[in-house]
Design a protein around this nucleic acid. Sequence first.
DNA 1: CGCGTTTGACCCGCGC
DNA 2: GCGCGGGTCAAACGCG
Length: 292
Amino acid sequence: MEDKNRAPRGSGGSGGPGWPFPGDGGGILSLDEICGGEREEASILSEFGWSIPLDSGPIGEDDDGFSGFGLEGAPGPSETVVAPPEAKSDQPAAALPARSSDAVSSSSSEEPPPEPDEKPAETANKSTKKGQKRSREPRFAFMTRSEIDHLEDGYRWRKYGQKAVKNSPFPRSYYRCTNSKCTVKKRVERSSEDSTIVITTYEGQHSHHTVSFPRGSVHAQNAAAFAERLAVSTPQLYLPAMQFHQNLAVGAGQLLQTPHGEHQPSLPARTSPLPTDEGLLGDMVPPGMRNR
DNA sequence: CGCGTTTGACCCGCGC
DNA sequence: GCGCGGGTCAAACGCG
């Protein structure tokens, strides 16, 4: 059908040891490279906007445990915010970093008790399929401005489906963690409003550690971890994206969190009270990784 | 040969 | 009850 944002065929996996990017278009660099600061491919990842689930309480609180985020700078729908599953096609504001608690490796302190997420994917799927509603797993969504559809996050994913999204020229890709014991799933789609925005939705919680810890995926990984963490511990907290970016030298990312149009985050990512290099980052990112 | 992607069909939930 | 749309399955295919 459409091969719009389809990863290059035979890419041999979207997350191999080398963390190659699906970008077949020449010039696409891996985040690793970008972060490395050696080269610059602004076109690839110039901005990152993350947010944290606002209200909706702890993940899984909402009807579907869904949380959405907004992306500042997004030309059009930048206000995209909490977009409950119901808000389908309209504003697919979602992306949810699964609670990669493992990825963060024992950032335990706030790590919520292993919820019923740990059930085998199979079981989960099956049960959901026959049992009650589908997807009971907490979900996290975050928007990223990138030309890359499938951002690296430290885990290996296998694509198991792709569907055309209603009201959107871009298809939605479905990924599943390659770890057989991992229930995490991920959906990736581009915003119909702004094709430069990639909406990633994580569902579930990794029951294992990252396959590797490529520098390039640091931010992505952190994004998930970060969101996860905040989501579980302080739903009302906003992610200091800027800081994050600074720490990671990712670039000019900007966070925009627009709660249900009400409590505007008074705490701008930039003035986030979080300690700089330490804080969450220090908690999530192994010292060795914080080389940038 | 193994792993991952592609792709059409099927299943299920939900709204009308 | 019906139809629509999202999500998942699984066989086929391709690449390293």
